[in-house]
Structures are given as C-alpha cells and as structure tokens.
Design a protein around this nucleic acid. Structure first.
Lengths: 193, 193
DNA sequence: ACCTGAACACCGTTCAAGT
DNA sequence: ACCTGAACACCGTTCAAGT
C-alpha cells in the first residue's frame, strides 16, 4: 500500500501527466471547494511533497491544467468557411472548456501567475479573426472573452447538474450569435454581415 | 491590549458593521489571497471565534459583504430619462462594485451560498428595464450580467493598479455602449434606437 | 532523480467554559 | 449576550534525509 521510501523502480514513478489526469478527475467530481495539493496527493497514493518536483507549486499545477484544458479550444476545425463561423467555433470550444471545470477557472482568476500561455494564443487568434470583420477588433475581443468567462463562471455559482450544462451550452450559443450579429452589424463595409 | 475574557462592557463590544467595515479594508488592501476569518479577527484585535456570533460563518460574512457592496448599484439616479440611460447607469454602478473588490466577487462565485439577495434585485430591475426595449429581455440580461462579471473579474487577474482601474471603467462603458446599441438594434419596433 | 517524514505557519469551525 | 482558550481537521510549502 505505502510506497517505498527511496527512488522508485524503473517505470514505477508517477509522471506529470498522471498528476494532471488525477487533478482533472478531482476537479470533475466537483469535490467540495476543489483541488488541494494534499487531496491530490492522497488520490495518487503519495505524500503531498512528491508533487512539487513535477509541477513546481500549486500555481504551476493550475497553469499546467489550464494549458491542457484550454488548448482544445485551438483545435483546427476542418472545412469551416468564413471568419464568423471560425470565431463561433473557437469561442464555443473555449466556453465549453471554461464551463467544464469552473472551479479551475475560478482558481486561475484567483492565481494570476497561473494564467495559461494558451489563453494568449486564443485571444490572439480571436483578435486576428475579428480584425477581418470589424473596425474595433480589440473592443469586441474583450467583450466576447469577458462574456465567455462570465457565462462559464455562472456554472460554478449555479452548482450545475450535468443536465443543465447542455442547456447552458445552448444558451451560450444563442447569446454568442446575438453578439456576432452585433459585431457584423457594427461594421459599415461588411457585405450585409 | 488583549480583551477581557467575559462579556464586554456596555458599548465596548464590536458591532456587525465594525466587522464588515474591517473586512472591506482588508479586501481593499488586496492582501495576499484575500479575506480570512483569522486575519479579519486579528485586525479587529479579537479571537477568530468571536466573529461567528455576528456573521454566522464565512459564507455569511461574504453574503453580508456582497449585500453591502452591491446595493449601491440600486441607488436611484435622479432625472435619468429613458430605459437605455437607466440600464447604463445600473450596470455601470454594478460593474464598479464588482471591479472594486474582485476578490470578493471571486469568493462569492466559489461560495454559492453566499450569493447576495441584492444581486437578484439588480437582475430583476435590469430585466424589467430590458423588457421595455427588446423582445428578448432574458437573453440580453444574461449577456449583460455575464459580461459585467467577466469584465470585473479581469481586474482580479490583472492585479490592477489604481490608475488602470479608471481605464478599465472607461473600457467597460465603451463595451456597454456597443452592447446597448445591439440591444436596441435587435428590436424592430424601436424608434431608431 | 524521486520519494519520504517531520515540521512550520497557516486555515475554518466546534465546544466548553468564563463574565 | 458576548468573548475566550483549547482543540480538531484541514491547508501549502521547506528541508533534511533516504535510496
């Protein structure tokens, strides 16, 4: 049951990915206030301190988790024509990630050092896409990202049941469509939006 | 220095308002990860347990703080004609409150039991106002509230300096105006928006 | 290199006093 | 009614081992 004291045998040590996977399971269970280093270590059958070699500290763990969770928003969708459709897909996937682990999103907001690099990639791509359909790409980028965060965090406050999550996703898409209408409508030169 | 052990003399005990005021000071200092019962008690020169008779538990404290901070959003503005102007004033004040103590907002999202009653009043008034200028008041209510939350919380992540806060307020107003354009524009029957 | 145990400085909260 | 001290079950993290 308890692990040997010294260096583990070849292939017996836990990997960084083992830690991240266990952390996501813990977050997925919506366990209490969420993720702690000690609870995570207990689930892995390991002392808390052994985590530090792999993830740095708690902020490092959160950052690694954010990277892993949010990177899926950047998945290339195949055969999606038009900036609007691509923006829609990008934000829908990002919102899905934010809403899937609201406790993680909350923890990241409370731990600025944990802000993921992949988030900057997402906003950069979003800005580039917006620049092609509006004169105010930065303004709309902030609006769309802030709205996605607020909508995703409402899941944390709502103690969302799995059934509600689908509803929330639909509601988000509705809201997003209205916002994209506004983005297109706000540009004089766009061909009918 | 240290307080007597028994019941304090007349008028010597701390009041609930003393606790809330000290908590806001603590939050305002952006102290570390924020508000703890023990740090709050230490600032009041009191043992942590003495707080519990006044505010219940930590969720109760957060709820009381949220009520006190967010209620200012409901201040009646004098001589503000038109639904749009009233919505603008309501949301601007709400966003100001959310952004003034982002740590509090974050803590409330993480503690759903702490959700303030005054928040429901704010959304109710917002819905009533929206119903008079759009066919989809609930959809736009969610969009506007989620956006205000996301924008306010960005302050927590950004470790905002006081100077930046003014900029953020201006940026929010710009964004809000665009969104209100969209609200008005989305209704066929409105007289030119 | 990778894990352990003990330790330090914290948490929120309950409970039995004390006046 | 209102505050205290001791206690319980937690936190994140450092440090000196152990293999």
């Amino acid at each position: 049951m308890t692990r040997a004291r010294g260096r583990p045998a070849q292939g017996q040590g836990m990997s960084r990915d083992d830690i991240l996977a266990a952390a996501l399971v813990l977050l997925g269970e919506g366990a209490g206030q969420g993720l702690t280093m000690r609870a995570l270590a207990a689930r892995l059958g390991v002392t808390p301190m052994s985590l530090y070699r792999h993830v740095g500290d708690q902020a490092g763990l959160l950052r690694a988790l954010a990277d892993q969770v949010y990177v899926q928003a950047l998945d290339e969708p195949v055969g999606l024509a038009g900036e609007r459709a691509q923006i829609r897909a990008l934000l829908t996937r990002y919102h899905q990630a934010v809403g899937r682990y609201p406790q993680l999103t909350l923890a990241i907001f409370a731990t600025p050092q944990a802000f993921a690099g992949v988030t900057r990639q997402i906003t950069a791509r979003l800005t580039a896409l917006l620049a092609r359909i509006t004169d105010s790409p930065l303004l709309w980028r902030d609006i769309l990202v802030d709205h996605a965060h607020g909508s995703g965090l409402a899941l944390a406050a709502g103690q969302a049941q799995p059934a509600q999550i689908e509803d929330m996703a639909l509601q988000y898409q509705q809201a997003l469509d209205r916002l994209l209408d506004a983005v297109c409508g706000s540009t004089a030169g766009s061909p009918r939006g």
